[in-house]
């Protein structure tokens, strides 16, 4: 029973990684990562600089090989160089350059040839949607245009799995929207998307699930709506009385981490908020806001903790 359960999970996983560890000499890249990305989902991968996102992605793309652990991608275990498997993946590198003396069209034609595609097919369509001028040389492209080129490269062969390392950096908001439309289309066509990003509103908007990586280890994997702390209410109160009233009103009993900022007292409350509201109502209130935290806020706090921990550790 256990084994059939396993098979079922493996069958549904586009990416399945076990105890994946990568050391660069003595530098830690990632350590003991277990991760499953299901077929057909858009999966976000976030974490501070140097956390190990690109390391994980470059392992999945066979650019580097693990120190230990296993990786299964689209049902195939990665053991060394596997071009047939790469054929089924669309990859967008975090830092990408192309042969600069070719025109966009020459370059994409070369790439299309490597994928065994006939003619230009999807290339024209995607380039048009991203308003990318293919007649110019790669050299003359701006950062955003190079990113568009990389997107067309990643998407041209209708891959089953898209692995994208910070796909939207460098794209203007309009193009970001076009890009998200494009990957949602791919998802609707049955493809899986695995993307790393620093823009958390993106994760909020498009991802089904999100993994957080920190110092080379996964700290949480959850649905975007269930990210830890997501259901904690934020309460922002302005009292009629001016100034910092934390001590005078003993506000720390509501939330020990309460802060006072520009006339507003900010609380984080988990679970029931009745007690908090009752306590606040003991004093004359001029304004009160209760809301859910944005993903951005949660991660800002998360990252800050991380930095603090790192600094203390040294």
């Amino acid at each position: 029973m256990v084994s059939s359960e396993c098979e079922r999970v493996i069958g549904l996983s586009a990416i399945s990684v076990r105890s994946l560890t990568k050391y660069y000499g003595r530098t830690r890249g990632i350590e003991n990562i277990d991760l499953d990305v299901e077929k057909g989902e858009i999966f976000g991968f976030i974490g501070p600089n140097g956390a190990g996102k690109s390391t994980t992605i470059r392992l999945l793309m066979q650019l580097i090989f693990p120190t230990s652990g296993t990786m299964r991608v689209l049902g195939e275990e990665i053991r060394g160089d596997n071009p047939r498997l790469r054929r089924r993946i669309g990859y967008l590198p975090g830092e990408v350059s192309y042969y600069s003396d070719l025109t966009g069209r020459q370059l994409l034609t070369f790439i299309a040839g490597a994928y065994g595609l006939e003619g230009l097919g999807r290339i024209e369509e995607y380039s048009e949607r991203l308003s990318l001028d293919l007649s110019k040389t790669v050299k003359s492209y701006s950062l955003g245009n190079r990113k568009k080129l990389a997107l067309v490269h990643a998407l041209m062969h209708d891959p089953e799995l898209l692995i994208l390392d910070e796909p939207t950096t460098g794209l203007d908001p309009l193009m970001q929207a076009v890009f998200f439309d494009m990957i949602k289309e791919r998802r609707d066509a049955g493809a899986t998307v695995f993307l790393s990003t620093h823009v958390l509103s993106e994760v909020d908007k498009v991802c089904d699930r999100v993994a957080i990586i920190r110092n080379g280890s996964l700290v949480s994997v959850s649905k975007v709506s269930e990210v830890p702390g997501r259901d904690h209410r934020r309460i922002e109160v302005t009292f009629k009385e001016p100034g910092n009233l934390i001590e005078r009103f003993d506000l720390a009993r509501i939330d020990p981490d309460v802060v006072y900022e520009a006339g507003v007292h900010r609380f984080k409350v988990s679970g029931e908020i009745n007690d908090a509201l009752r306590a606040l109502a003991e004093h004359p209130v001029s304004d009160l806001i209760v809301r859910l935290p944005s993903l951005e806020e949660l991660f800002m706090e998360f990252y800050k903790d991380d930095n603090a921990a790192e600094t203390n550790g040294r």
Partner: peptide, 17 residues
């Protein structure tokens, strides 16, 4: 050196080829 490695070496062509 020119960062073209990521794009070229992930093409579906074996490294040996």
């Amino acid at each position: 050196d020119q960062h073209t490695s990521e794009a070229v070496f992930t093409l579906p062509v074996s490294r040996k080829a």
